[in-house]
């Protein structure tokens, strides 16, 4: 049975350092997944940025992406919300 694909929104809190955005985008796209929406902004702590990434995928695939993101040296936290 094919699992259903949905949009998941990943909120990532990352160190505000050069190259972090590219690394995260590369990690997702490099594994063949499409980023649907992407929003990057500051948090109250200037050294931390927040990225909201919308990806389309099955639960299994998105879980794998989350675990990969958590392995990323500059990623502090990843929270996932299921969309439509």
């Amino acid at each position: 049975m094919q699992e259903r694909e949905r949009i998941y929104v990943l909120s990532c809190f990352v160190e505000n350092k050069p190259g972090v955005l590219a690394r995260i985008v590369g990690l997702i796209s490099g594994r063949g997944y499409n980023i649907q929406t992407l929003n990057v902004g500051p948090t109250e702590d200037g050294t931390v940025s927040r990225m909201k990434i919308g990806v389309l995928g099955t639960e299994k695939v998105v879980n794998q992406i989350i675990l990969q993101l958590r392995n990323c040296v500059n990623v502090m936290e990843v929270v996932c919300r299921r969309g439509r």
Binding site: K60, N63, Q64, L67, Q68, R70, N71
Partner: peptide, 8 residues
């Protein structure tokens, strides 16, 4: 030790 390798 790599969480992402489990159930991958």
């Amino acid at each position: 030790c790599d969480a992402s390798s489990i159930e991958k």
